[in-house]
């Protein structure tokens, strides 16, 4: 079927709209964390929805949200490649260095709970955005998008064990950054 004929089918457009648009904020959220740039994120989300509409006929699952997030992730990877080839726009990937971050932090001497609660959303967003890939992606898919380990594994095409170790490391890295920012007690 020619693509245009498929895309002009208003019934299909309605089904696509009902199924895909409720996830717009989810898709945009992942794009913001993956690309760390609001305007690039908008472009990626728009491209994601165009691709999703194009492939909607052959869509048989998984659930709509992980399917859209997987498409968005592919769009973002293309953007990474573009940035890497541009001399100024490369995303620094500090994964090698971060691999050295120990999973175990020092045993907390003060109750961490009070410290954690003091962080506001914008600070946490900044700390999450500062995580290296692939830990950031895994963390966002789990903690913000609430995907299951299995869904994340399928989406990133890695074993569940890899998802688990990435998530553990992401949380350890985030906690270190979190503690490092701790303001002196008043």
């Amino acid at each position: 079927m020619p693509v245009n004929a498929a895309n002009d089918d208003p019934e299909k457009a309605r089904r696509f709209r009902d199924a895909a648009l409720p996830h717009l904020d989810d898709v945009y959220t992942l794009a913001r964390y993956l690309l760390r740039d609001a305007s690039d994120a908008e472009d990626a989300v728009q491209e994601c929805y165009l691709r999703a509409l194009k492939h909607f006929d052959s869509y048989r699952g998984p659930a709509m949200k992980p399917w859209l997030l997987a498409i968005l992730r592919n769009v973002c990877r293309a953007e990474y490649a573009r940035r890497a080839s541009s001399p100024t726009g490369a995303i620094e990937d500090v994964a090698d260095k971060e691999e050295q971050t120990p999973l175990w932090s020092e045993a907390p001497e003060t109750p961490e709970t009070h410290i954690l609660r003091q962080r506001d959303a914008s600070t946490i967003r900044r700390l999450v955005s500062a995580l290296a890939e692939p830990f950031r992606e895994t963390f966002v898919l789990r903690e913000i998008q609430n995907l299951s380990y299995r869904e994340i594994a399928d989406l990133a095409d890695v074993p569940v064990g890899t998802v688990m170790s990435r998530l553990a490391r992401a949380r350890a890295m985030l906690r270190s950054a979190w503690m490092a920012e701790q303001e002196p007690p008043k």
Binding site: T29, I124, I144
Partner: peptide, 11 residues
């Protein structure tokens, strides 16, 4: 703490 904070963005 992560769950309590709103870390999502609105399109």
């Amino acid at each position: 703490a992560i769950a309590d904070a709103d870390l999502r963005y609105t399109a």
